[in-house]
Nucleic acid binder design. Sequence first.
DNA 1: CGGGATGATTTGGGATACCATGGGGCCTTA
DNA 2: TAAGGCCCCATGGTATCCCAAATCATCCCG
Lengths: 155, 155
Amino acid sequence: MDRFVSNFTNRLDAKGRVSIPAPFRAVLARDGFEGLYVHPSLDLKALDAGGNALLSDIDRLLETLSPYSDERDGLATALLGVSEVLKVDSEGRVVLTESLKTYAGVSDQVTFVGQGRKLQIWEPERFRAHLDQARATVRELKRRLEQTTSREPAS
Amino acid sequence: MDRFVSNFTNRLDAKGRVSIPAPFRAVLARDGFEGLYVHPSLDLKALDAGGNALLSDIDRLLETLSPYSDERDGLATALLGVSEVLKVDSEGRVVLTESLKTYAGVSDQVTFVGQGRKLQIWEPERFRAHLDQARATVRELKRRLEQTTSREPAS
DNA sequence: CGGGATGATTTGGGATACCATGGGGCCTTA
DNA sequence: TAAGGCCCCATGGTATCCCAAATCATCCCG
């Protein structure tokens, strides 16, 4: 398994360190990236994190824009300019910078959420709320699908 | 990591010296350039800086314009003509020239912002404002991309 | 089916190294 | 000789490393 799956909640210690969940560390190790690449999500109050896979996604996105264009500069600023490459200690922990914690509203606990090629870092309460809302959206979508197609519910 | 990522704010001392953030120094060292190449940004009240990678980007840009054209001369003047190659002292500090500081509105602090192959130098308050604007622009850009492609959000 | 027991993982803390910053003084240059 | 640039060393604060304790999960045996 080479992608981030499931979610884990860990606490920050007095020095602000958090353990990256072991399953996620395994994915990162296979990815081959030294450290943890983290940046604020563009539209959620959460952090996106990952390794080379995430980096190359960002690179690809930047390459679609012409050099020296405003769009590209803006994107580089909004992504690379506010990113951090966090060092991982020998126990698999990282320390989030102040600005990252502020952005995500993190204080003493964080929830790591698998997203396939990347992972997200949430303040636990916010993640619960986000999850509830996402489920509601999905239920709504499912209901609409069931109305247009005349198939029976898939449970 | 071979690109400029994240941002750091450092202060100028009484002699006008600023430390280049250590992670950026590491990138410059790998790039192999002696010193720090700096020029005013073409359209922002900030400075662009870097090493050989930035230099070769500029070269490539100039080559796209026909030799002896007014455009090329103008661009060469605006980039190369106002560039400085700053010496880096043994502690990794540089001294910005008066004209560079004036252009960027720098007084006693600067923010170094990673942009991948190059970095930018900002007066901290101006950078905050610029970042807000860049994020807004990117959100808009992302919305457009999501409409054209039917892929899932990249966050 | 319950109770340990074993190994992995997370959490904690002290020591250490690195880095941003400040200042002295020499040496060049005008 | 005065000014400025440059090199070197000193210091405080912070991040990193290494070792130890506690927590948790899994597996095995009774």
